[in-house]
């Protein structure tokens, strides 16, 4: 148990400082990089909010696809090896749906405005 404020609130406070106090004082490249920095903090906020559920579900799908267990990193590496060795492919039931859901969840965290899967 840590103290208040929460991580999410701390990140929000720094982002708010950047956007509403620092950026109006900045110019040129530094102002641009402050904008990028604020956007990076927005990714942190979204990952704190959406990440745990998305990653738990990703792990459950990988276990269902591959069997066995492991960390998310280990499971993803195993899936990569399976695709490379052609033991798993687009004709494997559940693979396409898994990849699409994973990309959807990652987009929601990293680039919610990207045109990518909106039309899909």
């Amino acid at each position: 148990m840590t103290d208040q404020p929460s991580l999410l609130e701390l990140v929000g406070a720094v982002k708010n400082f950047l956007e509403h106090h620092a950026m109006p004082e900045l110019k040129g490249q530094t102002a641009f990089h402050a904008r990028v920095a604020a956007n990076a903090l927005a990714i942190v906020e979204r990952e704190l909010t959406l990440g745990p559920k998305a990653m738990a579900e990703e792990k459950a799908r990988l276990v269902a696809l591959l069997g066995g267990d492991g960390t998310l990193d280990e499971l993803n590496r195993r899936l990569c090896a399976h695709i490379r060795e052609e033991r798993v492919g687009l004709d494997t039931p559940g693979l396409a749906a898994h990849l699409e859901q994973t990309a959807r969840d990652k987009l929601a965290i990293n680039q919610p405005d990207y045109s990518g899967l909106n039309a899909a």
Partner: peptide, 12 residues
Amino acid sequence: RRAVEAESDLIN
């Protein structure tokens, strides 16, 4: 962190 935009385009 934009690697995922390529992933989503490849899926499309």
